[in-house]
Amino acid sequence: MNGTQWAFIGVFFVLALLFPALPIVLGHFMGPRRPNPIKNDVYECGLKTYGTPWVPFKVQFYLFALVFLIFDVELVFLYPWAVAYGVLPMFAVFEGILFILMLAAALVYAWKREALDWYEPTMPEATD
């Protein structure tokens, strides 16, 4: 049963890529093509882009991704537990809850260390 489902998804994956690709290719050939340096310029408000678009970003982005990664890994562990929930004895449920509490501890730590705060130099202080 599952094998056929996945075979279908495999076929559908190819179709899902083709379906949007087709109109895009079609549009590419149907539209006019008169490029000129000004038209092809990168959009900017009145000026040429100053420097490269590669500006180093805030460290916060990285921290959010980091905290997310930890949560993601832990949550994937929790799904089999939730599926098996019906056949688990009470103490096994509490083992899962202990796991969740560890997750909560991670959240509390990240919160207290202000890893979840967003600072803007020009922003009025976040209201918390």
Binding site: V59, Y62, L63, L66, V67, I70, V73, E74, F77, L98, F99, M102, L103, A105, A106, Y109, A110, R113, E114, A115
Partner: peptide
């Protein structure tokens, strides 16, 4: 879970 908690603490400490 403890390991991941430790990883998070370490990562935040290093990044911050």
């Amino acid at each position: 879970s403890v390991l991941l908690l430790a990883a998070l603490i370490g990562a935040i400490y290093v990044a911050w």
